[in-house]
Measured scan of single mutants.
Amino acid sequence: MISNAKIARINELAAKAKAGVITEEEKAEQQKLRQEYLK
């Protein structure tokens, strides 16, 4: 099960992506976390 901290990070990265200020490194982290969440 995914931790609350990881869910919070997913939401934080989603907000950054929506604002258009996300880095390529953060995009990769976001994809990794989303895949983990979906498992």
Rank of each mutant, 00 (worst) to 15 (best):
M1H: 13
M1W: 05
M1P: 13
M1F: 11
M1T: 12
M1S: 13
M1L: 12
M1I: 14
M1R: 12
M1K: 14
I2H: 09
I2W: 03
I2Q: 09
I2N: 08
I2L: 11
I2P: 14
I2Y: 02
I2F: 05
I2K: 06
I2V: 09
S3I: 10
S3P: 12
S3K: 10
S3H: 08
S3T: 12
S3Y: 00
S3E: 11
N4D: 14
N4M: 14
N4T: 13
N4W: 02
N4F: 04
N4P: 15
N4I: 14
A5F: 00
A5R: 08
A5H: 09
A5T: 12
A5P: 10
A5W: 01
A5N: 10
A5S: 11
A5K: 09
A5G: 09
A5Q: 11
A5Y: 01
A5M: 05
A5I: 12
A5E: 14
K6R: 08
K6S: 10
K6N: 08
K6V: 15
K6E: 05
K6Q: 12
K6F: 06
K6A: 13
K6D: 08
I7V: 11
I7C: 14
I7N: 05
I7R: 11
I7P: 04
I7Y: 03
I7M: 09
I7H: 07
A8S: 09
A8K: 12
A8W: 00
A8Q: 12
A8T: 10
A8G: 07
A8P: 03
A8C: 10
A8I: 12
A8D: 12
A8N: 09
R9V: 02
R9I: 03
R9G: 01
R9M: 03
R9C: 02
R9T: 02
R9Y: 02
R9P: 00
R9H: 02
R9L: 04
R9E: 02
R9W: 02
I10Q: 04
I10K: 03
I10N: 02
I10S: 05
I10M: 15
I10Y: 11
I10H: 05
I10R: 04
I10V: 06
N11P: 01
N11Q: 14
N11L: 14
N11W: 09
N11I: 15
N11C: 13
N11K: 14
E12T: 04
E12H: 06
E12M: 05
E12W: 01
E12A: 05
E12I: 06
E12G: 03
E12L: 06
L13R: 02
L13N: 00
L13Q: 01
L13W: 00
L13K: 01
L13F: 00
L13P: 03
L13E: 03
A14Q: 12
A14M: 11
A14H: 08
A14W: 07
A14E: 14
A14V: 09
A14S: 07
A14T: 08
A14I: 11
A15F: 05
A15N: 09
A15V: 09
A15I: 09
A15L: 11
A15T: 08
A15Q: 11
A15K: 12
K16D: 02
K16W: 00
K16E: 01
K16A: 05
K16S: 03
K16V: 04
K16Q: 03
K16M: 06
A17M: 06
A17D: 07
A17H: 06
A17Y: 04
A17G: 05
A17S: 10
A17N: 04
A17W: 03
A17P: 01
A17C: 14
A17I: 05
A17R: 07
K18C: 14
K18I: 12
K18H: 10
K18M: 12
K18Y: 04
K18F: 05
K18N: 09
K18A: 15
K18E: 12
K18S: 09
K18G: 06
K18R: 13
A19K: 07
A19D: 07
A19S: 08
A19F: 06
A19G: 06
A19P: 00
A19V: 07
A19Q: 10
G20F: 00
G20R: 05
G20D: 05
G20N: 05
G20E: 05
G20W: 00
G20Q: 05
G20I: 01
G20L: 03
G20Y: 00
G20V: 02
G20P: 00
V21A: 10
V21P: 05
V21C: 09
V21K: 13
V21Y: 06
V21N: 12
V21L: 12
V21I: 14
V21R: 07
V21D: 10
V21S: 13
I22L: 13
I22H: 00
I22C: 02
I22N: 01
T23Q: 02
T23G: 03
T23E: 02
T23C: 04
T23W: 00
T23N: 05
T23K: 03
T23D: 04
T23A: 01
T23L: 03
T23V: 01
E24M: 08
E24T: 08
E24D: 10
E24R: 08
E24G: 05
E24W: 06
E24K: 10
E24N: 11
E24S: 07
E25P: 05
E25L: 10
E25S: 09
E25W: 07
E25A: 10
E25H: 06
E25N: 07
E25T: 07
E25C: 07
E25Q: 10
E25R: 07
E25M: 08
E26D: 03
E26N: 00
E26R: 00
E26P: 00
E26M: 02
E26G: 00
E26I: 00
E26C: 03
E26L: 01
E26V: 00
K27I: 13
K27L: 11
K27S: 08
K27D: 07
K27T: 07
K27Y: 11
K27P: 01
K27H: 06
K27N: 06
A28V: 12
A28Q: 12
A28F: 09
A28R: 11
A28N: 12
A28T: 11
A28I: 13
A28C: 08
A28W: 11
A28G: 06
E29Y: 02
E29A: 02
E29H: 01
E29C: 05
E29M: 03
E29P: 00
E29Q: 03
E29T: 01
E29F: 02
Q30D: 07
Q30L: 15
Q30R: 09
Q30N: 06
Q30M: 15
Q31Y: 05
Q31H: 10
Q31T: 12
Q31E: 15
Q31G: 07
Q31S: 11
Q31K: 12
Q31P: 01
Q31F: 04
K32E: 12
K32L: 13
K32Q: 13
K32H: 08
K32R: 14
K32F: 10
K32M: 11
K32T: 07
K32Y: 09
K32D: 07
K32P: 00
L33D: 02
L33C: 02
L33E: 02
L33S: 03
L33H: 03
L33T: 03
L33A: 04
L33Q: 02
L33R: 03
L33I: 06
R34A: 14
R34W: 15
R34Y: 15
R34E: 15
R34M: 15
R34I: 15
R34Q: 15
R34K: 14
R34D: 15
R34F: 15
R34V: 15
Q35H: 11
Q35E: 15
Q35N: 11
Q35D: 15
Q35C: 15
Q35P: 04
Q35V: 07
Q35K: 12
Q35W: 10
Q35L: 10
E36Y: 02
E36K: 03
E36C: 08
E36S: 04
E36M: 04
E36V: 01
E36R: 02
E36I: 03
E36F: 01
Y37R: 07
Y37K: 05
Y37D: 14
Y37G: 11
Y37L: 15
Y37A: 13
Y37F: 13
L38I: 10
L38Y: 09
L38R: 05
L38V: 09
L38N: 12
L38F: 07
L38P: 13
L38Q: 14
L38H: 11
L38K: 07
K39P: 14
K39M: 10
K39W: 06
K39D: 15
K39G: 15
K39H: 13
K39N: 15
K39R: 08
